[in-house]
Write a protein that binds this DNA or RNA. Structure first.
Lengths: 325, 325
DNA sequence: GATTAAAGTGTAACCGATTTCACATGCGGA
DNA sequence: TCCGCATGTGAAATCGGTTACACTTTAATC
């Protein structure tokens, strides 16, 4: 079943059949004839042949550090729904936080396998930018602000600024912070910077020292919470860069016999299910993850539409709100 | 940069270049010449052209009900790692539990876009089987036992049998059950069947009535737990088909002032992070999700290798163990 | 009624690879 | 010396579409 047999059956040229599927310039009579034959045979044009000729794969490559994560899962869900709405499909790659793999997939995808790339990056080094520069397809970065590139991200600084302030407003004075590595600008650096700014503004500069970093695992939150508490035994508030870490911390503190939130108030980010269950009064920052995925796709679609024309990179900063679960 | 220019630069025919990339039959001299040119130019064969000719896309289509789910995320992670190990890529589709979409994607994928399909199904109706029958590529079903098809699934019956027995061994006598819809054979029917069998064996047939169904959302667990408790106020044990539901139930029961696990012991399935955090003594069933994803890919690869030969469908049933978080 | 623009059509080149086939070699064995 | 086999090689057909181009028909304008 190829275009030629359909053309023959319908008594038209193969160009006519192609036009039938693409854009007009075909008489009502022939259109109808072709429609009938197509219906009878169930014929559908070969995607690969189309791609070979047109150079468009109708696929978007999505690169994420991991997929079994509440926040990333929600972003991907948003991306996917919008991708499908636009008639595209999604090629997914997981890097397991390995920068080498990230570059590898970026490379493989750009090799004309996809029409565009969405990258949920964590750490951006010189090499990333070099590869990104040479990419032959448009790219949108999600979750990090990278000047000069299309990106959609949340307002991490103000979110954590507000959250930290809230802790003081609630009368907490001895805060601690469990963060992520500084190379991760959004999650690691920005959030902690906000924390530091607040404690300085409040005249408690020394609190910036109540700081440890952890990877994104529950287990890490568990361990680091213990370490932090050994360092300063009289903590009455603990802010974590993510809900997962916060959940780990909760577990550890409970095992230590600490009452939450009476003794120590805990805050996180993500509005994850885990936050709603762990302790009724865990405070968390809600980010609209699905939305950020959807916006990323829209940006990509715009870039795709403007392909060829000189296009400036776009940035989109999304808001947040505080949730007391 | 196409195969012809490379051939010219290396002073060989285009067939030789093709052979260089595929299988041998090329002299050491030419191989070296081509290698050099390839290295200089960074040339890589066009995937689409290869596909058009060979009919192999090196892509596996994966269809899941949702992606922002702990268990599914872990399965997908397993699938993906094994897919990449075999040099394939993953095309992902999410159905949002809409059977129509499921069929749609199944159809779209089989339309020669992918070499094989992995389906994380929930509900299998006649129409599913019809489409599956006509699929032109091999398929593996994950999470459900569907006779006559390749599938990998967990031993839901025995898992929930053991879990329910454990509740009795712990001295609980008034059990309740929050389940999923019966059309979902694995999660809905089998697990509840095991529960019923145990309570009957223990001479407590009436407990089978302490039963409500919910969808997979946390919220549903929350609401249904309330309903169930109104029906029978003296429950001392509650088993839920999934950890997410269990977490919802936990939240509700706490709001009602019930002490967990002293008053009511709660069990779930998934060994989700949520189970480890919610209440220290939530009991959960651990399934090796990553493993099931990996095995599914292996099955698919075998089917791909045997393509053409008559192949019997394979089944793989995986075990479980009980975790007291 | 002539002129011109717009709509409709088919031919053929093209996208970039793989693979069949026929033909060259070089070598060992009879 | 001749035959047969294993190994290498390139020409050309093929996969299944899209689209530039040239051409014809139809409709619109003056």
């Amino acid at each position: 079943m190829n275009i030629d047999s359909i053309a023959e059956m319908a008594g038209v040229s193969r160009a006519a059949v192609s036009r039938y599927f693409n854009n007009g310039y075909i008489s009502e009579k022939k259109r109808e004839a072709i429609r009938q034959v197509v219906e009878e045979t169930g014929y559908r044009p070969s995607v690969q042949a189309q791609t070979l000729r047109t150079k468009r794969t109708k696929m978007i490559g999505v690169i994420v550090p991991k997929i079994a994560s509440a926040s990333i899962g929600r972003i991907v869900e948003g991306i996917l729904s919008m991708i499908n709405e636009n008639g595209y499909q999604m090629l997914l790659a997981v890097t397991q936080n390995d920068p080498k793999k990230e570059l590898e997939y970026l490379d493989a995808f750009s090799e004309k396998q996809v029409d565009g790339v969405i990258l949920l990056g964590t750490v951006f080094q010189a090499e990333h930018k070099k590869i990104l520069k040479n990419l032959s397809v448009p790219v949108v970065i999600v979750g990090q602000q990278v000047p000069g590139y299309n990106c959609v991200f949340h307002d991490d600084y103000h979110a954590f600024y507000d959250l930290t302030r809230l802790f003081f407003e609630r009368g907490r004075e001895k805060l601690g912070y469990i963060g992520a590595i500084r190379q991760d600008v959004a999650v690691g650096a920005e959030r902690y910077r906000a924390f530091c700014d607040v404690v300085r503004d409040m005249g408690h500069e020394e609190l910036a020292e109540n700081y440890v970093t952890a990877d994104f695992a529950l287990q890490a939150g568990y361990e680091k919470a213990g370490e932090l508490l050994e360092k300063c035994r009289d903590l009455d508030g603990l802010i974590c860069a993510t809900d997962t870490m916060a959940a780990g911390a909760v577990r550890r503190l409970r095992e230590m016999g600490i009452r939450i939130p009476e003794q120590i108030l805990i805050g996180g980010q993500g509005d994850a299910q885990i936050a709603r269950v762990a302790i009724p009064s865990l405070i968390t920052l809600h980010y609209s993850y699905e939305k950020s995925g959807e916006i990323a796709v829209q940006m990509l679609m715009e870039a795709l539409a403007e392909k060829g024309t000189q296009q400036a990179s776009k940035e989109m900063k999304l808001g947040y709100h505080i949730v007391e679960a």
